[in-house]
Design a protein around this nucleic acid. Sequence first.
DNA 1: CTAACTGTCCTAGTGACCTATGACAGTGAC
DNA 2: GTCACTGTCATAGGTCACTAGGACAGTTAG
Lengths: 134, 134
Amino acid sequence: MVFELNYKSAKPVYLQLVDQVKASVASGAARAGDPLPSIRPLAEELRVNRNTIAKAYTELENQGVIETLPGKGCFITSQPSPLRKEARLKLVTQELDDAVIAALHLQVDRAEFLRLAGERFESFTKRRALALQD
Amino acid sequence: MVFELNYKSAKPVYLQLVDQVKASVASGAARAGDPLPSIRPLAEELRVNRNTIAKAYTELENQGVIETLPGKGCFITSQPSPLRKEARLKLVTQELDDAVIAALHLQVDRAEFLRLAGERFESFTKRRALALQD
DNA sequence: CTAACTGTCCTAGTGACCTATGACAGTGAC
DNA sequence: GTCACTGTCATAGGTCACTAGGACAGTTAG
């Protein structure tokens, strides 16, 4: 797993890590059972404090993306979301609304928006399919 | 313009205001030339400090959503984004990637994702069309 | 057992955010 | 001109998220 941090960003480092782990899982780069990098070495590599990594892992565990085995490490979970379909659609809708608002402010029309949406979805699912071949 | 603030949210109040103004513009509820509420009365109504509203308006002006006429107030701009099409598509793509990642984590498949995307886009454009009738 | 690793808890410093207040400049009605 | 409005700036103080370093408990290899 390769992380890229933007220390100047308004988004806290630990949330950047959360997003990147979730993106890795979505793209298939990380699969159920895969271990996450150990906190201390990763902190040293990224030049941040151990607790920053630990906070990211705690957040990922709360979201059900990873699980912690005491003394052994953190691992990607096989994750069926426990939420009802209604609740899951609502969460995706909120993300889509942000994208729609951005599109309307940036003069991106409906056709182009939907083309991009399909393109990006397939970008992730194709990468996931490739990763599953290994 | 009606604002709803969540004081417990992790998102700063001034950014909540920025998002809501941008959403109003996207939905047509606010149109070019429309005045924004004056800083002092709005601050009193929302029970926040004047500076919090001022910070939101400053951010909106930086983003080109509104403009300030000294001594008169703040107004929605007729806003063609100055960015090149390439740059605008990149920004929308980033928003869409967030939505795709959420969808994949929440077991929302491609068809449903694209259906939602079209539905939400039209939700905004329909409201905008209705607002233009007035 | 020791040693080296795993994640976790506790305490503390920094800075963003919000608040409060006063003072300032530009506009328009009178 | 005065007065009431507009947004802006400077200052100061309080709160909390974020980050940092030390000490701790569980696991595994030797």
